[in-house]
Design a protein around this nucleic acid. Structure first.
Lengths: 341, 341
DNA sequence: TTGAAAGCGCTAACAA
DNA sequence: TTGTTAGCGCTTTCAA
């Protein structure tokens, strides 16, 4: 690779026989330039293999064409969560569609918040997308203080510093979806419906439990067991529930992974699904749902679309000038009936 | 947020009563500037909350302070692999230590290679880190063609386009590690040692199988079953092996996740571990190894360190000028004895 | 050791 | 519709 010097706009203009300004106009869409010249410039661009210099452009436009995705310490494991991969894919696709780059910021310790804040304050990115899953997280407070437009994935827990902040977020209707799931089970005539709850320091875990309680207002609290959104934790919770209530006839798990773990334990203990025990999950994650026997009935949320929405929300806010976008988006869920309930 | 205008170097210089050039020198380390002035400039920087404008700096230095991490389509699921999270963490930490940003590029379809190539050619990043796990992948060819310094994670499979390329990569000694595992099992006196192999279109899967064969040169090929690096696939493979060889007394699984699945099936079928069947995994992934009963004996590789090494390799190549860095790094592995073998 | 000045490549008034 | 020109904020010769 001889590593030729990269051609500048100047070179393109010269070759096309126009001024730098005209060449610039063409490169940026070509509005208000005579068709003939547009063609000549386009040709020159192709021949020279011209690629605009991003730094130069940013310097004058004050637009970076880049968005930060911030992942905070306790959540780094969410990389292992297929949920997150899907959302990230949605984000990536939508960003690409908007000619923006994805800058990944991983926050490790609490000291890192300073570094992140400096980076965000440094104007390297036009906005940020963040995942603030846990109660203790300072991220909403940090991004607000720095004053960079930010959209959160999942409703942030409103406690601690910045609890009063109205941060824009994208989430699905966790509570409503949970209600649908439990109502479906009840509609099947099930009498003892248990719940394997997700972590209670995340809104998704909290809201789904709330939805369960909405329907089973005066249910037996011992029909609720605590899980951690993993298959193993679902299995453990199921075993617990079975010990306490050998006669339970339905389970609503806080997510598909826990449902999968529950299914395994139920079958090990000789329960037929759905005859003896009906099971409903949450998420409709293909990689999980397609590998259970029987196929899992679950509450569907469009995770990838939620990722895309985060980007759209951010960019629409960016476009209409400063200031955060206080509107959030709550997406509908849908009960998908399969074989397990 | 009043969104004050960001102070420029000019402002810092004025406040410190020096020239812009001197202010610049201080901001960039302060070599060759009298101590008194250094102090004054530093003070001004603090008071004004000055943060250098990255675009302006890049424009003149031709250094981006950013590295792309490229993840190709078939591998997007590797987000679900704790292996990848760990490596990414190592990458992120080392990049941070080098004041560089991580730009995430996700390649979706084959059409995307064009977009990626354009981006890389556009000089937005100083170099790239890529994961080329599968045989068909064009990534090594693409990055080479574009001429951007690139380091791969895991030895790329050398077939198809660009098979002849000497691409620098960081990997562990998969083959040697596998040999250690199998020798350990043999040393325990095991006679019928099975192997659950990883995908044979990835070098890690291939090399570990080769290592197994190195030790068991004339072993029974039906003692080998095919897995896909997931727990479920490990369980399936184990069931297969048990059907074929009810008398097997040891299993070397291609990774910890498959070992975990195998463990479950072995126990369901009444085998005691390690008395009846000894099991060894590969990776020493904390999240897996700590959750098996009994605790898993496995081959350890320092995944996070491999991530860091990828960055160091890239940056050292960058520093000593153009041209790719043809040296690769193969890290040692270590057998970690626990309860399962 | 310090400062003056010349750009880096691009966009956006403003003029023509 | 097109071109001229003035910067964007920074680094880096080159002189002093």
């Amino acid at each position: 690779m001889p590593d030729r010097i990269r051609p500048t706009l100047e070179a393109v203009a010269a070759r096309a026989g126009v001024s730098r300004a005209t060449a610039s106009r063409v490169v940026n869409g070509g509005a208000g330039v005579r068709e003939r010249l547009v063609e000549r410039v386009r040709l020159a661009v192709d021949e020279l293999g011209y690629v605009p210099n991003h730094a130069a452009r940013t310097l004058v436009t004050r637009r970076n064409g880049a968005v930060a995705v911030i992942i905070a310490e306790p959540e780094i494991r969410i990389f292992s969560d297929p949920f997150f991969s899907l959302q990230l894919r949605g984000i990536s696709r939508e960003l690409t569609a908007n000619d923006s780059q994805l800058v990944l910021l991983m926050v490790e310790g609490s000291g890192d918040y300073d570094r992140i804040a400096r980076y965000l304050a440094g104007g390297h990115v036009d906005g940020a997308l963040a995942f603030s899953l846990h109660t203790q997280d300072q991220l909403p407070a940090v991004t607000h203080k720095v004053g960079i437009p930010t959209v959160f994935g999942g409703r942030p827990v409103r406690t601690g510093a910045g609890a009063e902040l109205a941060v824009p977020y994208v989430d699905c209707d966790n509570r409503g979806g949970a209600r649908d799931a439990v109502r479906h089970l009840a509609g099947l005539g099930r009498q003892r419906i248990a719940h394997i709850a997700g972590p209670q320091d995340q809104t998704s875990g909290i809201d789904r439990l709330d939805g369960y309680r909405d329907v089973l207002a005066d249910g037996d609290p011992t029909l609720i067991a605590q899980g951690a959104f993993t298959a193993d934790s679902g299995a453990r919770a199921m075993a617990e529930l079975l010990d306490r209530h050998p006669d339970l006839d339905a389970v609503f798990a806080g997510n598909d992974l826990m449902a999968k773990g529950a299914l395994r334990v139920l079958q090990e203990r000789g329960r037929r699904i759905p005859e003896d025990v009906a099971v409903v999950g949450f998420d409709d994650m293909a990689s999980v749902v397609e590998t259970t026997t029987p196929l899992l009935t679950t509450v569907r949320q469009d995770i990838e679309e939620m990722g895309r929405l985060m980007v759209r929300l951010l960019i629409s806010g960016l476009d209409r000038g400063e200031g955060p976008t206080p509107d959030s988006v709550i997406m509908e869920t849908e009960l998908v009936r399969r074989a397990s309930a």
